[in-house]
């Protein structure tokens, strides 16, 4: 079980801020493939990975990052702080 979080327009497109997912995905990219195959709203949200950023256990990382031991994965657009 892994907590998957969505922020900003990713959250709006998928329609929820957080869900628990039972997955055997080895990497973030594998998890994205599983999500895309679920439903159209996921396919739409994950259509262009260059428009997305990912954090594993609250650390920014890349889509090829391993999910081994991960508790939390978050997907969001490029950040706009300041």
């Amino acid at each position: 079980m892994i907590d998957v979080l969505y922020f900003a327009w990713v959250r709006e497109r998928i329609g929820l801020p957080k869900e628990k997912i039972e997955t055997g995905a080895a990497t973030v990219a594998d998890l994205v493939e599983e999500l895309r195959a679920r439903e159209e709203r996921y396919a739409v949200a994950f259509a262009d990975l260059s428009a997305l950023r990912v954090a594993v256990d609250q650390e920014l990382t890349e889509f090829d990052a391993s999910l081994e031991g991960a508790r939390e994965v978050a997907f969001f657009p490029p950040m706009t702080g300041g």
């Binding site: 922020f7 954090a55 920014l60 969001f76 490029p78 950040m79 706009t80 702080g81 300041g82």
Partner: peptide, 8 residues
Amino acid sequence: LKSRAPFW
């Protein structure tokens, strides 16, 4: 903090 802190 503009592009590395998670604010939207």
